[in-house]
Design a protein around this nucleic acid. Structure first.
Length: 287
DNA sequence: GACGGCAGAACGGCGGCTAA
DNA sequence: TTAGCCGCCGTTCTGCCGTC
């Protein structure tokens, strides 16, 4: 087996001579696979990281070089490549993902508790969802459990059957069923009782769903949904209505501010206490 | 035709953006 | 200021489209 250090060394050598405008992660990986004569598909992430590190180090060098350069010459090949990509409207996702790289273990990287069945399978009680999926796929490949006719179908062995309770399962269904085995970790304040999101109609493709939702008011529609009002707010509104959309409440407050000339230099000096929803509103300040 | 790149499905949470 | 919306994150493979 090839060591990581050997991989990195050859990767750098290759990148230093390769045409960076045409070289991709997979061409680098294939080159290394040919060179070492081994399958590096399991090293995909590692190779990608090393390529990113290589480019990061290049950018660092470029920046230091550019300090003494004519600013008009500072637009390097990469900038032009980015501009070209933007013109084509392609690659935005990839660029965004690099630029907006998130830190911290939120989302899928958040450690989760595992069901007893999954614990038995994984050998640990806490793992991030991504790691669970990764390990299951490693198990699938190791035992050759993919349906040759349709590699998206997984033929369950005893271990997987104990998890999924079926003889075969689609790769997407697998994730769905896995969610039953991935549990929120208990916090200091007790178990995580966060309310699950209301699931959209999964029979409709995601993009179509989004378009439909936009068509029905889309963004901001939630702001138009009537919300129950506090006693103080009901008293303030003065019409007896006990539920109003948030936007309507704010509109009426602003009407009140304007009617009573409570705004000074674009800043409403209406004291917060006056708007307090837990106490009787004091009279507005005398002008 | 070969190849590269993207979309799509499934999941939950974070952070930026938006509207009033 | 605030609640909600939205995109992204990682992982897998297939199918489609564009480019050479």
């Amino acid at each position: 087996m090839v060591s990581d250090s050997e991989l990195v060394e050859r990767l750098k050598e290759f990148l230093s001579t390769a045409d960076l405008n045409t070289t991709t992660n997979s061409t680098v990986r294939k080159h290394l696979e040919n060179e070492f004569g081994v399958d590096l598909s399991e090293k995909k992430a590692f190779i990608r990281d090393q390529i990113n590190l290589y480019f990061d180090s290049l950018e660092g060098n470029e920046e230091t070089k550019e300090e003494g350069r004519d600013p008009s010459e500072s637009e390097g090949e990469e900038d032009r490549a980015v501009e070209e990509e933007e013109e084509k409207g392609k690659g935005s996702k990839r660029r965004m993902s690099k630029d907006k790289k998130r830190t911290g273990g939120g989302g899928f990287s958040k450690p989760c508790g595992l069901s007893p069945e999954l614990q038995a399978f994984m050998g640990v009680s806490v793992l991030p969802r991504t790691e669970v999926v990764k390990r299951i796929w490693a198990h699938i490949r190791e035992h050759n459990l993919q349906d040759p006719a349709n590699k998206r179908n997984i033929i369950c062995d005893e271990q997987l059957r104990s998890l999924f309770d079926v003889d075969s399962i689609g790769m997407f269904q697998m994730n769905k069923v896995l969610s039953k085995h991935i549990l929120p970790l208990a916090t200091e304040n007790g178990p995580d009782v966060s309310v699950p999101k209301v699931k959209p109609d999964v029979s409709v493709p995601k993009v179509k769903r989004q378009k439909q939702e936009k068509g029905q008011g889309g963004k901001g529609s939630a702001l138009l949904a009537p919300l129950p009002l506090s006693d103080a707010l009901i008293k303030f509104i003065g019409t007896g209505e006990n539920a109003l959309p948030r936007s309507e409440v704010i509109k009426r407050i602003w009407n009140h501010i304007k009617q009573n000339e409570l705004q000074d230099n674009e800043v409403a000096y209406w004291p917060n206490a006056y708007l307090s929803l837990t106490s009787n509103p004091p009279p507005p300040p005398a002008s």
